[in-house]
Each structure stands twice: as structure tokens, then as C-alpha cells.
Design a protein around this nucleic acid. Structure first.
Lengths: 108, 108
DNA sequence: ATCGTTTATCGTAGATTTGCGATTGATTTT
DNA sequence: AAAATCAATCGCAAATCTACGATAAACGAT
């Protein structure tokens, strides 16, 4: 595209879109599923479960991290990740407010 | 990418990812906001509100439609769109089940 | 100190997304 | 019937995303 128009939208539109985009790939959903299932959550264990190369998984982890859906800390040579449930509930709240006064009726 | 690996993931991962991806652009969120706000919901009115060309808006409408987030019917020369709230509640349910047995505690 | 393990990052290729103008087809309006 | 309006689609350019191998960096074990 000639220009990126994403700056022209409102703040809540961007917040919702960013969260949704982070969730918008099956690999990242699968990562979240794994993190939700396990108590320990090391990168290598996620790599084992997914049909993707280590570098690709690491990239997805970074995206999830940037979007605030997960948190990670270095634990020796390994990296420990976990879900940032706060971000999820914040999103739910934003989403709820966003469609608060919606007209539920269908016009077509 | 060399190969598309999206077929390798589970069904619920794909369902969640597809819904999220459709929601993953501020323009599409803005369209949904406008549809939620209005009773009548004609394409031209959405074009007026967004900082995008008519053809681009039409494309976003098609994506939302394909993902099942909105429905559209032809109304003479115009096109009437509205939100498919059923899809939203279906997503909420899938999402809820997906993270049903999650470990809320943070490990890092 | 060297070796193996673990994970992040870099560079790159190919796919997809985003955006626009132009065009088309269909319907209103005049 | 001609002109104007509305919206979908086509074709294209640019941006972004996805994926991988190679490499680097950081740590633990030997």
C-alpha cells in the first residue's frame, strides 16, 4: 500500500485490533493453550509441541510478548513464559465498553 | 514463507485465530463500531466515517463478511450490512472452553 | 577452558495483507 | 434515455507477516 493508514484510527480501535492481531494466528493460539495447560512454561517445551522451527516459535513468542499477552523471564539458559491474564481481562473490558450501546437487532 | 503450516493446527486454534484475525485491523474494528452504533448500516455511510477509499472499505467489509462477523444484503443500489452477533457469542464460547482449565497463576 | 544446550536475533524468501484508482454492473434520478 | 450514484471487483504497488536456517549469546556441565 502507498501509505499506512493505521494511525488515523481511534485509540480503542487500535487496542482491540492489536490484541486481536496477536491472537490472529493458530500458532500463537496454540502457544497460549500450552501455556494455559502447563505450570512450567519453557520455550523448548512449546517448540516440541508445535510443528514449527525453534526460531519461528521464538518469533511468535516475541509477538505475544510485545502485545502484552504473555510475560517472559530468563531462567538460566532457559526462558520461562506465562500468560498475562491481566491483559486478557483488560481486553475483555475494552471490548465490552466498545459494544456497550450496540443495536443488537439485525437490519438484514 | 516456504510453506504454509496453518493446516497443522487444531480446529479450535484455527477458529479462534480466524475470528481474531478478522478483528485484527483498526479499520475493521471501526466498521463494527459504526455498525453497532447505527440502526441502518449502508456501505456509503461507513466510507464517510473511515479515512479510507471506497474500494478499501468494500474489501474490509468482504473480509468481515467471509469471517462471519457481519451479514450483508443488497438493498437496491445500496448494500446493507449488520453485525452477526451469533458469531460473536459463538467465539466467546469457544474462547471460554479453550481456556477453561487454565492455570491462572503466573510462573514468572 | 571447552563443549553442549537453550533461546534470541539476523538475513532472506515467499505469501499475504493493505490500499488505491479504474472499471464495471446495477440501480436511481433527472 | 442519459446522467448520476452506489458498491463490488480487478489489477497493481507497497508493506507486513510467516517461516526457516544460520549464527550469536548466555549459561551449565565436564
Amino acid at each position: 500500500m502507498a501509505v499506512n493508514k493505521k494511525s488515523e484510527f481511534g485509540e480503542s480501535e487500535k487496542i482491540i485490533a492489536d490484541f486481536a492481531k496477536a491472537l490472529g494466528h493458530p500458532a500463537r493460539v496454540a502457544i497460549l493453550k500450552e501455556l494455559a495447560r502447563r505450570k512450567t512454561c519453557v520455550c523448548g517445551e512449546i517448540v516440541e509441541v508445535l510443528p514449527l522451527a525453534q526460531s519461528t516459535v521464538s518469533q511468535h513468542l516475541k509477538e505475544l510478548s510485545t502485545a502484552g499477552l504473555i510475560s517472559g523471564t530468563v531462567d538460566g539458559a532457559k526462558s520461562c513464559y506465562c500468560i498475562n491474564w491481566e491483559t486478557f481481562s483488560q481486553f475483555e473490558e475494552t471490548f465490552r465498553v466498545f459494544f456497550e450501546h450496540a443495536n443488537i437487532q439485525r437490519c438484514c
